[in-house]
């Protein structure tokens, strides 16, 4: 099956600023794909190269197998974009704005009206249909961007921070709409700074930084890479933390009053039974246990800070991406 998005060695320079620095990324059809990265990582630049708002400096990108420059019309026909910044027609009432957008995609006149109404109802601003964009509230504007993106029934829906600065209610509404579209087969590319949003919605996430991909994985795989902390409460705490030589996963132990905190690589749930056995073998009585996972957010911070702090990652080592050596590096780094 052709990929929904396939980027190879993609580069973009804005003057001296290198916004995309050899980005390799592929998104499969039907996927719900998250694109994470700190401010200025190049997420919006990447998205804009797909729709023709940014001209790439080098590399290749295809959307459903069509080259973004040579087959620009096919590419643009297949994409619905809700951009990060508001860029909506100010002359016409929003219902007409949606009809125009559908018309640009070749949708027939009668069908345009139906689609515009449907999209406005879906995002819950149908009663504002005769209002101009400038007179909508901030959250309504966000909703309209989504309506405009879906009015053409795209195969690839791109959402560039759709939930930035919107209330909880709207966020849940948006998630519901997007999830339904994804269930119906629409490929979704989402950028967000709410990590838990990506964790909750996405099949896979890519983390990018400084115009490059740092890693791609499922949210579960990513959290697996972090270290979990198992905290056990001991009835008669020893004077110092007991040695746990038998357990190779243990990275660090710390004793505070009656609480022993043990940091382990990988899943805390898998290590916990053996840890308890080891402690009981030593005669400790355990009154309580708690396992806390590293959040995706912590992983994210580590991955992107790692990039920033260390020397430039070497060209050949990163290659396709830096996935292979990430867990080791993560585990090795001080917290």
């Amino acid at each position: 099956m052709t990929l929904a998005i396939d980027a190879t060695d993609l580069e973009k320079d804005y003057g001296d600023v290198r916004a995309l620095d050899g980005l390799n990324l592929s998104v499969e059809q039907g996927e719900f794909f998250g694109l994470l990265g700190p401010n200025g990582a190049g997420k919006t630049t990447f998205i804009n190269t797909l729709v023709g708002l940014v001209r790439k400096t080098g590399g290749e990108v295809t959307v459903f197998g069509n080259d973004v420059e040579d087959e620009y019309r096919e590419v643009r026909d297949s994409i619905g974009l809700a951009p990060q910044e508001f860029n909506v027609d100010r002359f016409f009432p929003i219902r007409e704005v949606l009809m125009h957008k559908a018309g640009y995609h070749g949708v027939s006149e009668a069908e345009r009206e139906r689609r515009a109404d449907e999209a406005l109802k879906l995002v819950g601003i149908y009663d504002k249909r005769n209002t101009r964009f400038d007179w909508l509230s901030g959250g309504m504007k966000r909703r309209l961007l989504l309506a405009r993106a879906i009015v053409t029934e795209p195969n690839l829906l791109i959402l560039d921070e759709p939930t930035a600065g919107v209330d909880v209610q709207l966020r849940h509404d948006l998630w519901e709409v997007i999830n339904r579209l994804n269930d119906e087969g629409t490929t979704i590319l989402l950028t967000t700074h709410y990590i838990e949003e990506a964790e909750r919605l996405c099949d896979r996430v890519a983390i990018m930084d400084s115009g490059r991909k740092v890693t791609v994985a499922t949210p579960e795989e990513l959290t697996e890479r972090g270290s979990d902390t198992i905290t056990v409460e001991l009835r008669d705490p020893p004077a110092s933390a007991p040695p746990l030589d038998g357990l190779s996963e243990v990275e660090d132990t710390r004793l505070e009053d009656d609480r022993l905190a043990v940091r382990v690589a990988g899943s805390g749930g898998r290590v916990a039974p053996r840890l308890l056995n080891a402690l009981e073998d030593r005669g400790h009585e355990i009154t309580d246990i708690d396992i806390s996972r590293t959040s995706l957010e912590e992983i994210f911070v580590e991955l992107t800070e790692g990039q920033r702090g260390s020397d430039e990652p070497d060209g050949d080592g990163t290659g396709e991406d830096g996935t292979a050596d990430e867990p080791a590096r993560l585990a090795g780094e001080a917290r």
Partner: peptide, 12 residues
């Protein structure tokens, strides 16, 4: 106002 993006990102 960047709304020309509506046109130029369309398949015209």
């Amino acid at each position: 106002n960047e709304y020309i993006h509506e046109t130029i990102t369309s398949p015209l």
